[in-house]
Amino acid sequence: MKYVLQCEDSIEGIFSAVYAAWELKYGHENTELQVFGFKNSNIELFCNYISLDPDAEKAQKVLNTIRRICSDMVYEALFRAACSDAADKADAIYRYIQTALRMGSKVRNHLTDPAVVRVMELSRAVGNAEHHYLGFLRFIEIPGNILLARFAPKPRLTELIIPHFVDRFPEERFVIWDTVRNEAGVHVPGQTYLMMKLTEGQVAMLQQYAEDNMEAEQLWKTFVENISIKERENKKLQQNNIPLHFRTYMPEFQHNGLPKAILQKGEEHGE
């Protein structure tokens, strides 16, 4: 008999399901992990489905064990893989941990094991998206001298990228808002950041700010237009380097937006 453990799509959800897989003792070969909410997961016959609630304590135990037996690198790879948007991530993580507990930190070298390769691929994909958004994320200044960044990443990224911006803008008040999952990271000067799940009211409030109140956006568009060399134009290369899905909130790619009343407003909230 095969057992499918279904868990929530979150760090706690996935890692507490890994804990449960050991706890339930159905045998690793009979157990599979699945994350809720992926459309293309077919329901199988002759299979027991068990849905699990996330349990922060159990998840922490698993993560602590990984850190102790393996290394921080392994922990980071697993953490990133758990943020991925791939449907098979939970099972790949589960299989990886089986090998990891046997091999310790050397598991990262074991690139002939399919689960190890899969977790490497997932964490690499998340890491790449993370690095891209360090550059492609755009802030707009909203009243009160607050910076607001909206982005729609495929993997769950807010918590992975926010430390970079906390380090970069220690004196700024800013919000990074994941518009897909409606979660946000918030930073206030002198403090570390805070992760929060946004309520409908908060989302509605943030939605009214769609444009920057300074002329910086126009200046930026002018700059981007003029820095390109006409004789070398290569839109295909541009699209390889910055695929369309990244561009949703980037002002330099918004060509038919509404005209912006910016110049006067800018004076009030300037220096």
């Binding site: 550059g135 220690p170 070398r232 290569n234 910055i242 980037m250």
Partner: peptide
């Protein structure tokens, strides 16, 4: 204001790629 990371960060790509 600011920091710097060794690999560098691309912020956008112009029409010439």
């Amino acid at each position: 204001i600011g920091n710097s990371v060794a690999p560098g960060i691309c912020h956008t790509f112009s029409a010439d790629g």
